[in-house]
């Protein structure tokens, strides 16, 4: 598929957020793979110090440097970077002010620790600053070094504050380089090159949080991306059967006959097994019905939606490629 065919053509910074437990990091990683495929170069950035990327790609903990971690289907590279706010601050000071000595002194005095933990606005500026620098970076040939950057961002509850750096920092630093820097970051974040994607499950709480998050991001004037519905279970039953089962109606007799025919059980055994299975089906049907309601709620946001299958064996490297493929076929990358 040509990159011009995707839904997010022109977007260079993909911010991936979601409620805890929805598989935000997994989706970010799969999206990076999908964006890289076909010979592109993509940077996957992690900011929360969890080393989640390393775990998913089954690698030792990542250092604070950009390194290649995966090759995408049909060529293309995924690089990863785990941003450490302290390191980012030192690098930043050296890069912009040549203050290596002062940087070390600051570290020793706990200033860096202070600035990066006590004033989270500063930390967010450093992290988003490093990320947007990678987005803007150009090689000797004048072309962008990365075709896309995927940011495994903080959870939905914090995302707007995290991205809205100017506002956060404005209260603290009214003038000076940090202020200028945050303005620069803001320029990238607010541009059409950035989109905020939401990862959710088809459950009430994550869906509600996603809708709240989308509203918040919109109010802040940031560009919304797509909704990635993660861990979707396919339903193998006909809709009529599901509808009846959701009402608690399911024909056990017919099922028992089927079990008998399959050689699984006989007589009373077949009936009791059928009862157990029927209980499963009723539960499944009720959940499917609720999931459908959640899908409809998500529709209110009027954003492109992508459904990613539940990987029954858990997320491993093969599963990640499967998700990446799914993202590509649905046109998200």
């Amino acid at each position: 598929m040509d990159s011009a065919d995707t839904d997010w053509d022109g977007v260079r910074l993909h911010v991936v957020t979601g409620k805890g437990g929805t598989g935000k990091t997994t989706v970010a990683a799969a999206l990076a793979l999908a964006l890289a495929s076909g010979g592109h170069k993509v940077l996957l950035v992690e900011v929360e110090g969890r080393q989640g990327i390393a775990q998913i790609f089954d690698l030792p903990p990542l250092p604070y440097e950009e390194r290649r971690i995966a090759v995408a289907p049909s060529g293309g590279d995924v690089y990863a970077l785990a941003i450490d706010p302290e390191e980012a601050m030192l690098e930043y000071m050296e890069m912009f002010y040549g203050m290596r000595r002062a940087g070390r002194a600051l570290t020793k005095m706990g200033v860096v620790d202070f600035a990066t933990t006590v004033a989270p606005g500063f930390r967010d500026v450093l992290v988003t600053g490093k990320t947007t620098e990678a987005v803007r970076r150009r090689g000797k040939d004048g072309k962008r070094v990365y075709d896309a950057v995927v940011l495994d961002a903080p959870p939905t509850g914090r995302i707007t504050r995290f991205l809205n750096v100017t506002q956060e920092v404005a209260g603290l630093a009214k003038v000076g380089p940090i202020k200028n820097h945050s303005d620069l970051v803001h320029g990238v974040v607010k541009s059409p090159e950035t989109a905020v994607h939401f990862v959710t499950l088809l459950e009430e709480m994550p869906v509600q949080e996603t809708l709240d998050g989308i509203a918040e991001v919109r109010t802040a004037g940031l560009a919304t991306g797509g909704i990635f519905i993660n861990m979707v279970r396919e339903s193998l039953l006909p809709q009529a059967t599901l509808d009846a089962a959701a009402q608690g109606r399911f024909d056990i007799g017919d099922l028992a006959l089927g079990l008998k025919s399959a050689g699984l059980a006989d007589g009373a055994d077949a009936t009791s097994l059928a009862e157990g299975l029927a209980e499963e089906i009723v539960e499944h049907a009720r959940r499917t019905e609720l999931e459908q309601q959640e899908r409809e709620s998500l529709g209110e946001a009027a954003l492109p939606r992508y459904e990613l299958p539940l990987l029954t064996d858990g997320v491993d490297l093969a599963g990640l490629y499967e998700l990446a493929e799914s993202i590509r076929t649905q046109g998200a990358a």
Binding site: A102, G103, A105, L106
Partner: peptide
């Protein structure tokens, strides 16, 4: 002195 200088440079004197 270095630290204060750096802080001022980075954050501005008001901070």
């Amino acid at each position: 002195g270095i630290v204060a200088g750096a802080m001022t440079k980075l954050l501005g004197a008001q901070v």
